[in-house]
Amino acid sequence: MSSLTSALPPAQGTGARIARWGLYLILLLFAAYYLLPLLLMITTSFKSPEEIRTGSLLSLPRDFSLDAWSYAWNRACIGADCRGMAPYFLNSIVIVVPAVVISTIFGALNGYALTKWRFRGANIVFGMILFGSFLPSQVILLPMAQTLGALGLAGSAGGLILVHVVYGLAFTTLFFRNYYVSIPDDLVKAATIDGAGFFQIFTKIMLPLSLPILVVTIIWQFTQIWNDFLYGASFAAGGAQPVTVALNNLVNTTTGVKQYNVDMAAAMIAGLPTLVVYVLAGKYFIRGLTAGSVKG
């Protein structure tokens, strides 16, 4: 990708230089706007309650302290349970890993079947699956709660895994379908003549070519499921709650003195996994974001 204006010669002269400075200034101001909440969280989480009360909102911590982090991690009270964020963090991992793996596998298979072995009505099937990605969750909250109850999965990690797999299928199928459309059908024909079957072509030819979209899908699903709050709040009970629900409970606890540094540390703990993934593989995250919305 190259800049649109790279086709043109750069502007010359003093006016152009001033405009250039203005441009950078605006961009940096916006950067500050976007960074502010995150910086606030980070600095505050390293401050002592004393310093928060007396110091300025934007100042850097004077005495760098990890107390709030360790307190948030294993001592903070979430409801009546004072084991900190750690068990909930673990809950999220237990939910996210299988949900991501299962929904990605199904998405890859669906995308492969819907593009390379098209059957009558394949487009309608795809359209109906795709609609799921826009579904307002509120419509399915109640029936899902009832169904999970009937299946004996109410309040459990298993229930949440099921929910995330089902409602993630729309996205994973979309990603793989759009990717596989760009792989020529001739490869499948050649492999068929060479004697490979449906699954052999998938594992030996398609999957080895799928690394980029695999990364996009896994990152997307990981971020979505880790960040989920609504399903977690609706379907998980007590000790099985994911980290976002625990964070919300912690922050909104009204009993006792408000420990802002602990709140911020807890928020950072809950946000760190997706933030790290984003910083390391932002390119793939952006691709996921734009994959469903921009043609081609």
């Binding site: 441009l23 976007y34 909440p37 964070l247 807890a266 932002g282």
Partner: peptide, 30 residues
């Protein structure tokens, strides 16, 4: 603005977009 051959475009893009990677339950705290 970012399309004007900006130095550090990658970093700026990363900064502008990171809120999408975080749950609002997290950033809402701030």
């Amino acid at each position: 603005l970012l399309d004007q051959r900006i130095r550090g475009e990658g970093a700026l893009r990363t900064i502008y977009l990171y809120p999408m990677a975080l749950s609002f339950i997290v950033t809402g705290t701030a």
